[in-house]
Design a protein around this nucleic acid. Structure first.
Lengths: 205, 205
DNA sequence: CACAATTATGAGCAAATACTCAGATCCTGA
DNA sequence: TCAGGATCTGAGTATTTGCTCATAATTGTG
């Protein structure tokens, strides 16, 4: 076990239901606290308190504060991967607009429940190297996947599909996060409509 | 002087050149340190050290850590306002593509020098209320300004120009930041080209 | 030069906070 | 039922860090 892993791996595997419940309560509480106070001000004691659990219990399942955030981030990444897999199923051509709409909607859906937290994960988290690699890997996967779609779709008229793929992915990710978390959030229907319009017109040339 | 102001106002006005130099060195150092370590881990002592100045001197010109970041953010906002003003001068119609290119290029330019720091300012900074209002105000200004352009330009075919303005502004801001700061930054020429293409096709319907 | 104002210094304080550990409590299997 | 393992507790520790203040050095001025 490398020192880096030790920073993230759970200290103890829960063996009773009670323990697993505690773990979940801690994670839920952490999500709330981080979203409300930010990472630095989201203290471990505060998390424990919000979870209705002693600080000692918290450290029985998470070796340090980073690990808690890491777990939250991992979950989000898994969700992203699942979304990617789901979309791949409906791979058969179909209008490019529909594909883009799927992507946009999936982003909106997965970030509508707790936009504050997701922005935090995306931006404010001090990520250990191992996790950064995961993020990087998933992002690369998406870039490649998107480029494949663009390259293979008859409606698409783009020369630089590599740059386009990065642009599209980043636009969806960031803009949805931002506009959904803003002081006066945009109507998600309008957002979807305009965003899909923008991307569709873009790729169709 | 309200307590809120006291948190931001410089403690002392420099009266000798030496003092102004010190102030500048502190700000430059802070930009480096914040960009390299993030806000929380960018300690005041580290900033002072990087500036080659004692910690006491730092606190002679900045009442607290937030004030340093606030100054950096204010500068950035001022740059943004200046860019807006400059663009307004060339207001006369012209192809919408040129206008959009101006916006995109201005964003790229202003964030190419220190993308790390600028992302930080945008996202990670714990902002005192007063500053948040400034950010909010400038953003609103941009939204309104962009919508005006869209509404008044003959080439533009959009129904929901309000949402479109928010979408365009946010896209430019965030995507430029992100892609310029990414592990393998995009070529800024390509980025400009694709981004302008996307926005232009969008607004032209 | 003298002397006051300005600027610089940095050891150290107070507060915050991540994290530990020795012991109490609870659960389960035989 | 009950022993032993699993889980929980929370006061306390070690460390970090924003910030102060008494003192020293430097600069402008008459």
């Amino acid at each position: 076990m490398t020192p880096d892993e030790r920073r993230i791996q759970p200290r103890k595997q829960p063996r009773q239901v009670r323990a697993e419940l505690t773990r979940q309560r801690i994670l839920t509480a952490a999500a709330h606290v981080f979203a409300a106070h930010g990472y630095a001000a989201g203290t471990t004691n505060r998390i424990a308190e919000q979870a209705g659990v002693s600080i000692g219990s918290l450290y029985q399942y998470f070796p340090n504060k980073d690990a808690i955030l890491a777990e939250l981030l991992t979950r989000h990444l898994d969700d992203g991967a699942a979304a990617a897999a789901k979309i791949r199923i409906g791979d058969l051509p179909g209008p490019i607009e529909d594909i883009l709409r799927l992507l946009v909607r999936s982003a909106i859906d997965s970030h509508l429940d707790d936009p504050q937290l997701l922005r935090l994960l995306n931006e404010q988290a001090p990520r250990p190297a191992e996790l950064l690699q995961n993020v990087e890997r998933l992002k690369r996967y998406w870039y490649g996947y998107l480029q494949e779609i663009l390259d293979g779709h008859p409606e698409v008229r783009l020369t630089d599909t590599a740059t386009a793929a990065r642009l599209i992915f980043t636009t969806i990710e960031l803009v949805v996060h931002q506009l959904a978390a803003e002081h006066e959030p945009v109507d998600s229907g309008k957002l979807e409509h305009e965003m899909v319009a923008m991307l569709t017109r873009y790729v169709k040339g």
